[in-house]
Design a protein around this nucleic acid. Sequence first.
RNA 1: GUGAGCGUAGCUCAACUGGCAGAGCAUCGGACUGUGGAUCCGAGGGUUGGGGGUUCAAGUCCCCUCGCUCACCCCA
Length: 405
Amino acid sequence: MGLKYTKIKGTRDILPEEYSLWRELLERAFKILRSYGYNFIVTPTFERTELFIRSIGDTTDIVEKEMYTFTDRGGRSLTLRPEGTAPVVRAYLENHLIPPQKLAYFMNMFRAERPQKGRFREFWHLGVEFIGVRDPSADAEVVELAYRLVHEFGVKEIKLEINSIGTVEDRKRYREVLLDYLRARKDELCEDCRRRMERNPLRVLDCKIDGPKLLDAPLLTDYLSQASKSYFEDVLEYLRRWGVPFEVNKRLVRGLDYYTETAFEIKSGALGAQDSVGGGGRYDGLVEELGGPPTPAVGFALGFDRVLIASGLQGYREPLDYFIAYLGDEAREKGFEVLQALRKRGKRAEISHEKKSLKSQMKLADRLGARYALIIGDEELARGVVKVRDMETGEEKFLKPSELP
RNA sequence: GUGAGCGUAGCUCAACUGGCAGAGCAUCGGACUGUGGAUCCGAGGGUUGGGGGUUCAAGUCCCCUCGCUCACCCCA
């Protein structure tokens, strides 16, 4: 309170207790991703603004309102990455990686939105991009992997929704049909939807107000080509066979042009209005869009911050193996000696750097969660031992430093 | 960008229709100068988010502003 320097709106500090949870969940994730053949990649925090404009397209709202864009000293327009797919594909092309590639990442992202529950201006994505393969089994594997991770993270009330959005051509045809339908009902639509209609008609169907009223609206599913339909059926068949519970949501869409075929989203009832913990799908158009050869790809991103909220898991403080307490200068020196030896053995050990009363030192030992307190005084010095106090039972015994457990 | 709710000690919250800013927890110290977690005693810690106004008097009423939270918009 009254502090001059506080964190920027929409950012947050990850304190030690929460970080312990990050580490725990990330370790589980690394293990799983490794087993699926993924390799990790990290790209720069900022890129040319052009990269994102090209990948996101002409959705001006996003470009103008939601991105952190600035001009550097050379006059170039740069943008803090709002998502991971375009940078990873850029890195894939720029470094001449050979398909197929399974790339995973854990990186922070930036979007200039008003914060709300589970939505921050700086947030973390755990994602994967499987580049160079087009087969229903690849889509299904990516979906299954996302589901498995979310499950492994302990996210509560998981719901996996999936749909096919076909090809760009399929969507173009459908868009016209849907627009005709919506225009005919313009008067019944809410204010937002009337505005939304011309710019992004597919979104009108998941409007909280109008969506439920438009039950007889034409569905994208019915306008897919035969090839897309059977591709989707094959994806679902794999999921069934692998025991992944899903729900087909025929209104699930993606806004950008480079998306194709499979689209999915994982939601959790443990979140607020922003109830998606992650999503993904196939994007066969993007690699070419960014200047590479036509290359199929599929991937997903999980919102790590939301995963944490939806898992309900609490962090914990890392306990100490030993705390060394001493009485007098000579004992202090001996204490540091023992401390070094313990640390060399990989033990988590601490000492009171400031000379304080034994009582204060014991208090510190307790607060730091020490398993054992080692007490060194004149008596111990003379006998070449330390007094080992079990902080749980209060039991004490004398041991030579080399005999410590 | 829009809307609503909330800002009092480090944390959780009190303070009747305007009348001396408090408690619990936490922190530090002492009771116990070689022993933590329990108990008892004590201490520190606040421009009541900030600014302005009304009033003899403002945490309380009015205006402005900042911050937080949630929702809308948007959602790559």
